[in-house]
Design a protein around this nucleic acid. Structure first.
Length: 503
RNA sequence: GGGCUGAUAGCUCAAUGGUUAGAGCACUCGCCUUUUAAGCGAUUGGUUCUGGGUUCAAGUCCCAGUCGGCCCA
């Protein structure tokens, strides 16, 4: 890299003392070289880990305001070094981009010369100098001064090919973020989406609230909770599987529009689509219903997708594999009508006839003893849901599928619920919420198999004080991010996904 | 939980059961004052994930394990 490093004795012992025996000698050699330079920086009395450095903004800011002859101060990681003996072209990078700076090593003061010799890729530097344009037209800062701000004692991974190892990308996300532009883009987008959600609801008069993540009873959904213990109170607590029952208490308390955007926890398996902790949006709106909530959901997602007409999903090579149309209004259709579209005459059959047809003509696997509504649900999942890519609100679901929702006034076998399907997946549910405390009690009892111990009596007490009729929605933010960022795995949209510990 | 599949240098990847496991980049050294995946030359760098087994011979085949990936439940 640089021809003027001089003769540095290779002292492996320095690095050996801080490394365990399993680290290879090669690693020792690479680390030893960096520690040599660390010591070299300390020699003139400098602090290799720097301190405050006032800048004129980010690298992106400097690029935007770049002008020849103007002096800029900027800080970042040194990510490139092209050395011509006397002329050095270096890259300084931060999250906002990269800018080239130039150092002429011919006439440097001694401490600057020492700093340049002690440079490794990955080190943080602050630089100051005039802008100029090189022969090749590159905006460049002629660094009249540079300050080492932090030494990187390990080499950056990646390089031209990036960091490809999936496991390393997840276990050491910081390296993924440094090495892979796509990963940076995904998490910048995630931050933008979270901000967009908050803005959307604030504009509509919703209050952002925070309800307990530790709950005496894990209600609001059917899932295995994590259990913990509070010593001072001497009680077991559960990490929440949903915030729903607390948000509804707020409707009782007179907050007519609330939303919560935060983590839920489910003690279940890990997969491409499941992380034990995941981010959920829930919103409740007094005096609204399922239809208004569907409108709200459509508005929200279109806005988060920057009102794009369509979303192109790409494979690893960047080829478009599918296009999801966001053209509005999004289709709304009844569950039964959709099943009839896929299997005409379905509901005229006997339950036995449906099993026969599902196994035969439709080619589905129907387990023995499957309930009639489950057979129909198989048809829905395999023949409709998995083949629906553009947004579709499926409405008027059979009540067996959603036991906690309010029954439809005209047809008590149905519930006033929608399920939004996008890209072949259940994406987000919406409800006309149940606010009759007696019916709610019956439903919760039925759900718990008649076990009264697990009834959230405090929630039922709240309902008895009166909850306004309301609409509610839930939106899994991780799956939304998978869609918007074109990721196949939830681990690509969660900064630090859970993995089995190594060793 | 089941099936399939993967783990080789710091990174990205090669290597018919057969010589001393290679290449590019990075690192280190030499040359170079306008490059940008800089260039040219040289030198380094390996517990082939771990533990067994088969074989004259194992990165390669078999078994078990660890950690991933894909599919299914």
């Amino acid at each position: 890299m640089t021809g003027s490093l001089g003769r540095l004795p290779v002292l492996l012992s320095h690095a050996m003392s801080t490394e365990n025996a399993s680290t290879s000698d090669e690693q020792h050699r690479l680390l030893a070289a960096r520690r040599q330079k660390l010591d070299a920086l300390r020699a003139p009395g400098a602090d290799p880990f720097g301190g405050r450095f006032d800048t004129d903004g980010t690298v992106g800011d400097v690029r935007a305001r770049f002008a020849e002859g103007t002096v800029f101060r900027v800080a970042g990681r040194v990510t490139g070094h092209r050395d011509f003996g006397k002329s050095h072209f270096l890259d300084l990078s931060d999250l906002t981009g990269r800018i080239q700076f130039y150092v002429n090593s011919k006439s440097l003061p001694p401490e600057q010369s020492a700093a340049l010799n002690a440079l490794d890729l990955g080190d943080f530097w602050g630089i100051e100098g005039e802008g100029f344009i090189t022969k090749t037209g590159e905006p460049t800062i002629r660094a009249s001064r540079f300050v080492p701000l932090s030494k990187a004692l390990r080499p950056p991974p990646g390089g031209y090919y990036g960091l490809a190892d999936v496991e390393a990308r997840h276990r050491q996300r910081y390296l993924d973020l440094l090495a892979n532009e796509k990963s940076r883009a995904t998490f910048l987008l995630r931050s933008k989406v979270l901000r967009g959600i908050r803005e959307f609801f604030h504009e509509r008069g919703f209050l952002e609230v925070e309800t307990p993540m530790m709950q005496p009873l894990a209600g609001g959904a059917a899932a295995e909770p994590f259990k913990t213990h509070h010593n001072a109170l001497g009680i077991d607590l559960f990490l929440r599987i949903a915030p729903e029952l607390y948000l509804k208490r707020l409707l009782v308390g007179g907050f007519p529009k609330v939303f919560e955007l935060n983590r839920n926890f489910r003690n279940e398996g890990l997969s491409r689509r499941h992380n034990p902790e995941f981010t959920m949006l829930e919103a409740y709106w007094a005096y609204a219903d399922m239809e208004l909530m569907a409108d709200l959901m459509e508005d929200l997602i279109c806005r988060l997708a920057d009102n794009a007409e369509r979303l192109e999903l790409k494979d690893a090579e960047g080829n478009v594999t599918r296009t999801v149309s966001f053209a509005r209004p999004w289709r709304r259709a009844r569950y039964k009508d959709l099943v009839e579209e896929a299997a005409p005459g379905w509901f005229a059959l006997t339950p036995e006839g449906r099993v026969e047809r599902a196994r035969g003509e439709l080619g589905l696997e129907i387990a023995p003893g499957m309930a009639d509504f489950e057979v129909t649900q198989q048809v829905f999942e395999k023949k409709i849901e998995e083949k629906t890519f553009d947004p579709l609100f499926v409405t008027h679901l059979p009540k067996e599928l959603v036991p906690l929702a309010r029954q439809n006034a005209a047809d008590p076998s149905l519930v006033d619920v929608f399920e939004l399907v996008i890209n072949g997946m259940e994406f987000a549910p919406g409800y006309t919420e149940l606010n009759d405390p007696d019916v709610q009690r019956e439903r919760l009892l039925a759900q718990s198999g008649g076990e009264k111990m697990s009834l959230d009596e405090d929630f039922l007490l709240a309902l008895e004080h009166g909850m306004p009729p309301a609409g509610g929605i839930g939106l899994g933010i991780d799956r939304l991010m998978m869609l918007l960022s074109g990721s196949d795995s939830i681990r690509d949209v969660i900064l630090f996904p859970h993995l089995r510990p190594k060793e």
